[in-house]
Amino acid sequence: MNERQRDLFLWVWSQRRKPGQTAIGIRGALIGAAGGVLFTLLMSPGAPSSVPTYDTGGQLLGALSEHLRMLVLAVPAFAGIAWFLANRVYASQEAMYQAILQSGAQVPTQKPEMQMSDRGPAIAVGIAAAIIAIFIIVLFVMYW
């Protein structure tokens, strides 16, 4: 990591760490819970096969019970995983931040200027993420 990258990390992390580890963990859990809801909407089965097809009320209740069961299982699981990962990332970033500060570096007062060579890896990751997102969207459109 060169000096510009170090200064950028110090400045960005000094801004992002302000809410605290608890708030960031809760934010991660909420995002995970939303992922659990989305997972349930995408993956829930319909009514159980034991419900006759002519029983419209049973079909509806059977489908709702299956959706609720998956929702009750998926939301806490996704929220817990996201909370754990958010806390882990926070702890690792904070450890790196404290180690850099202990080595004698100072947090810059304003955001450092980045050069194109510093932004190259981020641009490459952004392009790869966009391509993956396009493929996922195409698969969803083809499926539905």
Rank of each mutant, 00 (worst) to 15 (best):
E3W: 00
Q5M: 13
R6H: 02
D7W: 01
D7P: 01
L8A: 11
L8Y: 10
L8Q: 12
L8S: 12
L10D: 02
L10F: 01
L10G: 00
L10T: 02
L10E: 01
W11Q: 00
W11I: 01
W13R: 02
R16N: 09
R16Y: 05
P19Q: 05
Q21F: 07
Q21Y: 08
T22W: 13
A23P: 07
A23S: 13
I24M: 15
I26R: 06
G28M: 07
G28T: 09
G28V: 08
A29Q: 09
A29Y: 04
L30G: 12
L30W: 05
L30M: 13
A33D: 10
A33C: 12
A34L: 13
G36H: 02
L38D: 10
L38Q: 11
T40N: 04
L42C: 14
M43H: 06
M43A: 09
M43N: 12
S44D: 02
G46C: 07
G46Y: 09
A47C: 10
P48F: 02
P48E: 03
S49F: 11
S50M: 09
V51H: 11
T53I: 14
T53A: 15
Y54F: 14
D55W: 09
T56S: 11
G57H: 06
G58H: 06
Q59T: 10
L60T: 13
L60W: 07
L60F: 13
L61I: 12
E66R: 08
H67M: 13
H67R: 13
L68H: 09
R69W: 00
M70I: 03
L71R: 01
V72D: 00
V72M: 08
L73E: 00
L73I: 03
L73F: 01
A74N: 03
A77I: 00
A77G: 06
A77F: 00
F78D: 06
A79I: 04
G80D: 07
F84T: 12
L85S: 14
A86Q: 10
N87L: 14
R88S: 15
V89I: 14
Y90K: 03
Y90A: 05
A91E: 09
S92T: 12
S92N: 12
E94S: 03
A95W: 01
Q98E: 07
A99T: 06
S103V: 01
Q106G: 01
Q106V: 07
P108S: 04
T109G: 07
T109I: 02
T109M: 04
K111G: 05
M114L: 15
M114I: 14
Q115C: 14
M116V: 15
S117P: 10
D118L: 10
R119Y: 12
R119V: 15
G120C: 09
P121R: 05
A124D: 05
V125K: 02
G126R: 03
I127P: 02
A129M: 04
A130S: 15
A130V: 10
A130H: 04
I131A: 08
I134M: 06
F135Y: 02
I137E: 10
I137F: 07
V138N: 04
V138C: 07
L139C: 05
F140E: 14
F140P: 08
M142L: 13
